[in-house]
């Protein structure tokens, strides 16, 4: 019999909330709760930075503050992301789960696999770019980040629906060595989004609903599990509120790596 996982589909939430919910789910799974696949969106837009990054190095603090863009440090490593028009997935499973376990490098590849497959079904020639990206014709359309703690693997990642380059690069600082290292003349050539490859209106409600459903199906099929739609438990709701307060709304956490 196939394992049953919980599927949570959230509408647009604020950044600190999204990060707190992922962490609360991780803790629930650590306590023996059901492995969970979650799909969510962001409103208002937010910037997240990796665990090991420094807010002032990765962002234009003045522009972010002036335009009400929070900058939140994740519990996962990886890079800075401007979250606006995207669908984000998160997956929380016990580390011993044979479907996704293995080395960190292997599990990145495995976990983004269904997303690459889905893009392929949509006629988009997407490829895995190690360590943690999905690209289309060499341009990044999805980035993921994984943590392993309390016996649980949590990975979350983006799928860009459309991208406002002007805003993205108003908020994010692009280090000179990184952009030059990949031989991209401009950030526009480094990043792409779904709407550049399909004719559908990616902001249309029914398109989003359909895409969300197809993402859940792609993961269920690829990982060989049944997804049962559900919500947070009462304990997760409570945990998420305290985590949000203690970490993602807290300057001490967000600036932890400041020199």
């Amino acid at each position: 019999m196939m394992d049953r996982w919980r599927l949570i589909v959230d509408g647009p939430l604020q950044g600190s909330r999204n990060m707190a919910v992922d962490y609360a789910i991780l803790r629930e799974v650590a306590a023996g709760g059901t492995p969970t696949f979650r799909l969510y969106r962001w409103y208002p837009p937010a910037v997240t930075i990796g665990y090991f990054q420094v807010r002032e190095d990765e962002t234009d603090a003045v522009a972010c503050a002036a335009e009400g863009i929070p900058v939140i440090r994740r519990i996962t490593g990886g890079g800075a992301v401007f979250h606006d028009h995207e669908i984000t997935y998160s997956l929380a499973v016990p580390l011993e789960d044979r479907r996704v376990a293995g080395t960190v490098a292997d599990s990145y590849r495995i976990i983004v696999g269904p997303l690459i497959g889905l893009l392929g079904d949509m006629g988009i020639d997407a490829a895995f770019r190690p360590i943690n990206d999905i690209t289309v014709e060499g341009r990044k359309i999805s980035g993921s980040a994984q943590t392993r703690r309390e016996g649980v693997l949590l990975q979350h990642g983006t799928l860009l629906l459309s991208v406002d380059y002007d805003r993205m690069f108003r908020y994010l600082a692009v280090p000179a060595v990184k952009s030059s290292g990949r031989n991209h003349a401009s950030p526009r050539q480094a990043i792409t989004a779904l709407d550049q490859w399909i004719s559908d209106d990616v902001s249309d409600r029914s398109f989003l609903d359909e895409l969300t459903g197809r993402m859940a199906d792609a993961y269920a099929e690829s990982l060989g599990v049944v997804m049962s739609p559900g919500g947070l438990t009462a304990r997760e709701e409570e945990q998420s509120l305290s985590i949000e307060e203690e970490l993602f709304l807290n300057g001490h956490w967000n600036d932890k790596r400041k020199k």
């Binding site: 990054q53 420094v54 490593g77």
Partner: peptide, 23 residues
Amino acid sequence: YLTLEGDTIARVRITGDFFVYPE
């Protein structure tokens, strides 16, 4: 980021978009 005291390392901050487990 590096701070030296004379020729001895006083403080190092290792930052970036990499991953370390456990963080």
